[in-house]
């Protein structure tokens, strides 16, 4: 079981967003489960080919994920998955 914690910036689009427990062996599987809690949220995080959007970052256990294209970074039990927007703006 892992926990996904998301930036509060996404609450504007998903007002009920909160930390969610998911179970997956990869980041891609965890995001897929997260989508079932919040339909449409994966479109905010990933492009239509399944890659992480350029200005979104995902950390697992405090480390930035390596595979931004297929999201195949492995998960451990009790991994904490943090989803942030990158610091780009204006």
């Amino acid at each position: 079981m892992q926990t996904i914690k998301c930036t509060g910036a996404l609450r504007r689009f998903f007002p009920n967003l909160k930390d969610e427990a998911v179970r997956g062996s990869t980041v891609a599987e965890a995001i897929q489960q997260f989508e079932s809690h919040y339909p449409g949220i994966s479109d905010y995080l990933l492009d239509e080919q399944g890659a992480l959007r350029k200005h979104v970052n995902i950390f697992v256990g405090g480390e930035l994920i390596q595979d931004r294209v297929h999201l195949q970074d492995p998960l451990q039990d009790s991994s904490e998955i943090l989803i942030f927007q990158a610091l780009s703006g204006g």
């Binding site: 996404l10 479109d43 959007r53 200005h55 927007q85 780009s88």
Partner: peptide
């Protein structure tokens, strides 16, 4: 959006309410 990709919204009541549609997608 700078972070979250392109989104498309429409309003049938001149902006009183807005709805989102699924964003157009390039096929796999």
């Amino acid at each position: 959006h700078r972070h979250w990709g392109q989104k498309l919204h429409y309003s049938n009541d001149q902006g009183k309410t807005w709805q989102a549609v699924p964003t157009p997608k390039y096929p796999k």
